[in-house]
Write a protein that binds this DNA or RNA. Structure first.
Lengths: 99, 99
DNA sequence: TCCTTTGTTCGCAAATCTACGAACAGGATG
DNA sequence: CATCCTGTTCGTAGATTTGCGAACAAAGGA
């Protein structure tokens, strides 16, 4: 029997979002994107002291968690919030935190 | 140069809290405690399909992140929210999510 | 005192995460 | 076409996380 049979769907989704937010680099990216609506990974790569391959992996994880989405704007990629899921995350955290 | 020299204090704290929330078991526990103000780990142990040593580790992590605190009520231990840090977390998430 | 109850710590294994550089892919541009 | 620019994927290494059972510690009750 797994934890998934005991925890609620919302708890599991919340844990998924929280996990994606659980790293300073990803938090930095999310915070930036949520404040300015979008950004380019090239810019991030210049600001952050990590290899671009590492950044790419973090962005991939944020995408996999559904928090952001990338849009090709050749030759760059523009990253924005995934608005639908962001709303869900807002709702879930709000309810969980009792806000 | 580390990410910590680039990310803000708030981003780092938020990432820390989020990381602690980033597992279904811990999310389950936090959700329960926040709704009923406190609980006993023995009860959790019965509800959750994990070894008590594993549960103990998860509780330890939540304590280390500052989200909960334990109070001995012999022979059991009563876990409650760490209200001070919970408030901070509420504030940080609220601001981050734009609520 | 001995036993039970409660929970932690230890030692271990498997899985996941974090990070890097090298190699690669796909568009623009000369 | 050859080259540059962007970003991803691959292979690898080391650290951390997750999970278990066994052993241990502390405190209360028989």
């Amino acid at each position: 029997m797994s934890i998934k049979s005991v925890a609620s769907e919302n708890q599991i989704r919340l844990a998924r979002y929280a996990k994606a937010m659980g790293h300073p680099v990803r938090m930095y990216v999310l915070d930036l994107i949520s404040k300015q609506s979008c950004c380019y990974s090239g810019d991030l790569s210049e600001e952050l002291p990590i290899a671009k391959s590492t950044l790419s992996q973090h962005l991939k994880e944020l995408k996999a968690a559904g928090l952001i989405q990338g849009e090709i704007e050749a030759p760059k990629i523009k990253y924005c919030l995934n608005k639908e899921n962001w709303k869900e995350a807002q709702q879930l955290f709000k309810s969980f935190l009792g806000l």
